[in-house]
């Protein structure tokens, strides 16, 4: 029944008159890493945000772990989920943003421990010790009490990854996690993500890091103008692209 973690069936998304997603079909199996490539404006980030219902889709069906995103189906009628039900579903999906979006008025450890305490009802001491572990895991065991402003971009992004992991998500979404970083800081963040993939986390990564996609992804999806142009194992899509739009894009990026 739930043999896929994410399944998209003809997903459409409009912003006013502008159609951003024009029928996306794809599937991510548990434990898989999918990398999404494509020029800016192709709809990758929008699709990612639809998965945890930060954006509502206009047509099609989107399932996470076998359940509809944002709706409940009864007969052939759809019912919108209540706000707390949406929040519950979101708490099971981790998301990492291009601009980190750490909470600037909290230390690294407070950032990581906040949601487990407030959303999961975990005790403060448990959340603290778990937060310390997670920060150690991303190589920031010595930055527990540091505020985001005093951290480099790469360190901030690793705190953001730890913050998402603290909710023990079954799926992680990465929205261009290294695009806002100085080149020499990209490596540490990619290492943390690589480690996560090795531990068996299901991940969807919107990225321009071709090396990472080639090495870590089980499947690469190339999107352009709101449709999936080409998808398949990295060796195929990146090594021998069949579609000319993919070829054109890769020749510019590589």
């Amino acid at each position: 029944m739930t043999d896929s973690m994410v399944r998209a069936e003809a997903v459409h998304k409009r912003f006013g008159r502008l159609e951003v997603l024009k029928g996306i079909n794809l599937e991510v199996k548990p434990g898989q890493v999918m990398c999404m490539l494509g020029p800016s404006g192709s709809g990758k980030s929008t699709f990612l945000r639809c998965i945890n219902h930060l954006e509502k889709i206009n047509a099609g069906r989107l399932y996470v772990d076998g359940e509809l995103v944002g709706y409940r189906q009864s007969g052939d009628k759809l019912y919108e989920l209540r706000e707390d039900e949406v929040a519950k579903k979101r708490s099971e999906i981790g998301m990492v943003f291009q601009q980190f979006n750490l909470f600037p008025h909290m230390t690294a450890l407070e950032n990581v421990a906040l949601a487990p305490i407030r959303v999961k009802g975990m005790s403060r001491s448990d959340a603290r010790s778990r937060g310390e572990q997670l920060l150690q895991r991303v190589g920031l065991g010595d930055k527990l009490g540091t505020y985001p402003m005093a951290l480099s971009g790469g360190q901030q992004q690793r705190v953001a990854i730890a913050r998402a992991l603290a909710m023990e998500p079954k799926l992680m979404l990465f929205d261009e996690p290294t695009s806002a970083l100085d080149p020499e800081l990209v490596g540490d963040v990619l290492d943390a993500m690589r480690q996560l993939a090795r531990d068996g986390m299901t991940m969807i990564v919107v990225t321009h890091e071709m090396g990472f996609a080639r090495e870590v992804a089980d499947e690469v999806v190339f999107m352009d103008e709101g449709v999936v142009v080409e998808s398949g194992p990295p060796a195929e899509v990146l090594g021998a692209p069949r579609h000319e739009r993919t070829q054109a894009f890769l020749s510019k990026v590589l």
Binding site: L54, R90, I93, F97, Q99, A160, A164, M167
Partner: peptide, 18 residues
């Protein structure tokens, strides 16, 4: 306050009031 702050908090499953 940047919109991203709200989105990050939403993605962690926090309620509007929180």
């Amino acid at each position: 306050v940047d919109e991203g702050q709200t989105q990050a908090a939403q993605s962690l499953g926090m309620s509007r009031l929180q």
